[in-house]
């Protein structure tokens, strides 16, 4: 039977914990048609800026639009690649240096679909989801992050 998908929440308040990632991997043990997973983890980097060193990033979003857009991207990626599973989690609020703020997880029968879909998802998430990061510096100054 064709599965009907509906928009689901991708946002997590605070950092994405390594335990959650491990649990998410473990949850796929029963899906025995999977032959490969691809995982991308975004981590907060201690960038050195002229005004100080980044110690955290505070994320905010336009939630309703972000969830609609994430759903659209999800459907397009499912249509393009033969995937078994896809999971997207993005943090909101203050995430400290070294913590995980983005978790993208794709699974398929064979590795290439999972890897290509994961890569494309990360690119589209960064370019198309209305999310903003404000860098908090050790000088207690702040500045808005610019995606490169």
């Amino acid at each position: 039977m064709e599965k009907v998908r509906s928009p689901k929440n991708i946002f997590v308040q605070g950092p994405i914990l390594p335990e959650k990632i491990a649990q998410s991997i473990a949850n796929h043990a029963t899906k025995t048609d999977i032959g490969g997973h691809s995982i991308f983890l975004g981590q907060i980097r201690a960038d050195e800026k002229p005004e100080g060193k980044v110690i955290a990033i505070e994320y905010t979003c336009y939630e309703e639009m972000a969830l609609e857009k994430a759903f659209e991207i999800r459907e397009e990626i499912f249509a393009k690649y033969p995937l078994t599973c896809m999971h997207i989690y993005h943090s909101l609020g203050e995430i400290k240096v070294g913590e995980i703020c983005l978790f993208v997880f794709t699974s398929s029968k064979h590795r290439k679909a999972a890897m290509q879909a994961c890569d494309e998802l990360v690119e589209r998430i960064k370019a198309e989801l209305p999310i903003w990061g404000k860098e908090i510096l050790d000088s207690s100054a702040t500045q808005w992050k610019v995606n490169t």
Binding site: G42, Y59, Y62, V122, K126, P130, I131, W132, W144, K145
Partner: peptide
């Protein structure tokens, strides 16, 4: 009103 996105 949406400034440039910087998620991820």
């Amino acid at each position: 009103l949406l400034p440039p996105f910087s998620g991820g």
